[in-house]
């Protein structure tokens, strides 16, 4: 068991307020106390990552379709930038397009989730993430 599970932060890159609220509500519902940080698009997310604002260990939950800088673009920047290239990233998007899935895994994402219309599916995703950071060893430096 990872003794630092409580310290793992979640950086959510999501342009939609309600989608972010969904995550917040689900956190509350499942009584997950881990820090939750939000970036509204790829540009903001990159700034946060570069500045080291979020302390390791953390994981990123990334939306694909966003204004300014979308998910694929951000993935590309992260993987080619020294220091943050090892970031653990999960995709959470409404796109079930085969091409989007393939492209994401080429950037070594840890998982790809399609946003469900109903709330129940999202709780499952969160409990998976909750289990993930409790069990998996994450880069700390």
């Amino acid at each position: 068991m990872n003794s630092n599970s409580d310290e793992v932060s979640l950086l959510v890159v999501e342009d939609d307020d309600i989608d972010f609220m969904t995550i917040q509500r689900s956190f509350a519902k499942m009584k997950i106390a881990n820090p939750l940080i939000r970036a509204i698009d790829g540009v903001e997310a990159l700034n946060i990552l570069m500045s080291g604002e979020v302390s390791k260990p953390f994981i990123v939950l990334l939306d694909l379709n966003m204004p300014r800088m979308g998910g694929h673009e951000l993935l590309n920047s992260i993987r080619s930038t020294e220091g943050i290239a090892d970031t653990v990233i999960f995709i959470l998007t409404s796109s079930a397009d085969e091409k989007d899935i393939l492209k994401s895994y080429q950037y070594n994402v840890a998982g790809y989730f399609v946003k469900e219309e109903a709330g129940q599916g999202f709780l499952e995703i969160l409990s998976l993430l909750n289990g993930y950071w409790r069990i998996a060893c994450l880069p700390k430096k």
Binding site: D16, I18, M21, S94, E117
Partner: peptide, 17 residues
């Protein structure tokens, strides 16, 4: 149909909450 769905989903969620 795809883009109309996302605000609709948001409404559905808010109503549920």
């Amino acid at each position: 149909s795809h883009d109309l769905k996302s605000p609709l989903n948001a409404i559905k969620k808010l109503v549920n909450w």
